[in-house]
Design a protein around this nucleic acid. Sequence first.
DNA 1: TACTATCCGGAACATCGTTCCGTTTTGTCA
DNA 2: TGACAAAACGGAACGATGTTCCGGATAGTA
Lengths: 188, 188
Amino acid sequence: MRADALRNQQALLAAAAEVFVASGVDAPIRRIAEKAGVGTGTIYRHFPTRADLVTAVYRHQIEECAQAGPELLAGSGSPFAALRQWIDLFVDFLVTKHGLADAMQSDSSGFAALHGQFLDRLLPVCGQLLDAAAGAGEIRAGIRPYELMRGIGNLCIGGADPQYDPRRLIGLLLDGLLLDGPRRPRPE
Amino acid sequence: MRADALRNQQALLAAAAEVFVASGVDAPIRRIAEKAGVGTGTIYRHFPTRADLVTAVYRHQIEECAQAGPELLAGSGSPFAALRQWIDLFVDFLVTKHGLADAMQSDSSGFAALHGQFLDRLLPVCGQLLDAAAGAGEIRAGIRPYELMRGIGNLCIGGADPQYDPRRLIGLLLDGLLLDGPRRPRPE
DNA sequence: TACTATCCGGAACATCGTTCCGTTTTGTCA
DNA sequence: TGACAAAACGGAACGATGTTCCGGATAGTA
């Protein structure tokens, strides 16, 4: 594959991820092309259908999200802070995931395969973060990764409603994991 | 309200219902206007947003479907035949209903209200048809209207898949209600 | 019958998906 | 290195669709 083609593909994946989070998976192709600094034709060559693009972003985000786990853990002060940041990435990812289900009305077997890939890759990472935070005495032990990720996934359903901000609720949920109570500015 | 305005509104409701069934609730506005024999501007005056139109069709179909029950019962040879025809209307109605859920991502309280109206109005009609067919000895007794309608509603999920024809399955389900077996042409 | 408020129709504009082709870039081979 | 062919790019152009707008038609009324 030619170097410029690879560059553009990467730029497109990054741009599409941003635009999807900001405007949903129905965002105009032009906007993605513009943000990536390429022409619209380039998008269609790399990703003939919208589902192709969404799927690719999905895969890409699974990988990015999985790799970010250990990095955050190493670079952050406390394991819990790392967990919080990682969950934020995870929510970005869910936006694409939920859009994906729409964009793939057909081919539901392919979707199931992707979902399996998603679980296999991300569950251990989440477990590692939880274990680290529990080991450091920050949060209670015994939280099951699947349960947490599933719950967060469900909280993200219906995120299109401007009256409903999943991230706020997820923040509260994470506060609830803490052993010594939420660290919020004390009133008075 | 002026007479021509009323005429157009009725024509639009009828045309939209047909087009929705044929092409889903995302069908082009122009096509509905054309089928109704009006201009596109007329649609926007009567129904400023697509959700308005879909909602109106929904209400209209609830009423039409409810009124068709007794009429079919009176005009048809057997109560079971009437039930079959009525279920067919009901499935048409569900197409709109499922589309409605998409077209109303916001305002989910309004959707709940409509759903209640739908149950209140249609359950008794279905019950009447079931009772008549059971009374005539055509089908087994004890079928609960809610159960039947709920089941048919669920069978209609995912009707966009060309591989999946809900009506065929619903036909089988109805055959299963019969006391003396399905009336299909005997092989050989 | 004349008049006005209302309504209608569809042209016109804006947006978006998709295709197409002249131009540019890249990798390779002499 | 320098030319060349294959690959990729960009964005203009086209068609389909949503939405607006206003000149003209029409229904109701005095």
